[in-house]
Nucleic acid binder design. Sequence first.
DNA 1: GTCATATTGTGAAAGTCTTCACAAGCCCGG
DNA 2: CCGGGCTTGTGAAGACTTTCACAATATGAC
Lengths: 223, 223
Amino acid sequence: MLPVSATPPSLPPSRRASDSTVRRLSLYLRFLEDFQAEGRQTVSSRHLASRGSTTAAQVRKDLSLFGSFGKRGLGYDVPQLAERLRDILGLARPWRVALVGAGRIGSALFHYPGFQERGFQLTAILDVATHRVGESWGAIRVQHVADLETVVRDGQVDIVVVAVPGPAAQEVVDRAVAGGVKAFLNFAPVSLKVPSGVAVNNVNLAAELEVLSFHLLGRDARE
Amino acid sequence: MLPVSATPPSLPPSRRASDSTVRRLSLYLRFLEDFQAEGRQTVSSRHLASRGSTTAAQVRKDLSLFGSFGKRGLGYDVPQLAERLRDILGLARPWRVALVGAGRIGSALFHYPGFQERGFQLTAILDVATHRVGESWGAIRVQHVADLETVVRDGQVDIVVVAVPGPAAQEVVDRAVAGGVKAFLNFAPVSLKVPSGVAVNNVNLAAELEVLSFHLLGRDARE
DNA sequence: GTCATATTGTGAAAGTCTTCACAAGCCCGG
DNA sequence: CCGGGCTTGTGAAGACTTTCACAATATGAC
């Protein structure tokens, strides 16, 4: 009989995953790694959901966007699903990251263990302060931000982390975009303009605190 | 003539604002402060929208949840709207914040200027490492995490920032909740369980990078 | 005073995301 | 081999968010 379809080269179908779906997948992966460390062989959507704060249906819907990974009646194979999630999230290959801004936030990121662990390789650190230029952070020497074009040239950098003060952020992004960078993690409290096809992820600590402040007033009705 | 209504004690009507609405309000406030610094007296929803990455209709809907602050044909008065947003977000009064975990992330937060600027007062720092206990961070002396109960007692702390390793986070939160804390900013990559009525805001740096990684694969179809 | 222009505030429509509910499938004991 | 017990994958329903479109209304020129 004819093989109906050898499911294309390597990638699953994938309709369209929203940002929040992707964040949840990332959480699932972490839970799976925990389960694997605990020696669990299989896990159900219900179990996975209870560890995060979501529902079993949500877990199944999220996964079903990318394929059919479970066994009915049984659940999911822990190491196998973890592997699939790594594929889906693009963690199977290393990404090269440049950090612009070697201040406190930059330093915290540099020392953040989850960073390198997941295949994000810090390959360059840039700063505008001349007294920092030349410092060695681990194996990396801090360069002046004027070298940004050289650093990102020829696709040498996949992701740029923007940890500079607000007013300087847009210029950094523009120059990196011109050099071909397609993804940014932005800590500056400004809203960056980028051409379509370029992704920006904002982490705004002030806003996070203000959301809490709003909750404390009790004027919101979240259960 | 009778005053139709002296708009209740102090707070606007407010139906129900979602988390994303509140995050946008926080952004609007920042933009308004920029405009004010530039000497602008009024601003339209269109103008406000163009600085963030949203639409004029969205801006108006967000604001309309809390009242009617603009003038038709003219727009919004910049200082006045900023003031209203500060009220809505709860920034009119200071909040007392305790930081648990005096490592890199804790240190970055401590030095983050937007933190104190917006009325978030760091009143205590706790860590489990005995070599850190007793250190002075500015005017604050680092205490041992065993003192958590004392620190949060009698509503002395409004918000607890959790910057400890994953496995230690839940215990910190449980103890703080028992002490009456109602809001948490969590940097540990775990999903915390709290009773209803308690707010947790998660900042998961690994997940942010993984969202970017996913985008870089180009399997998502965001314009 | 009237007209032209600008911009808000808001129902209604469209779109997106989450939850529900159930058929289909897999495992195991007897 | 059969039946009971679970659990997935998914269409359909429901809930929530965003966008549209327009009446209401403020300003300023003449």
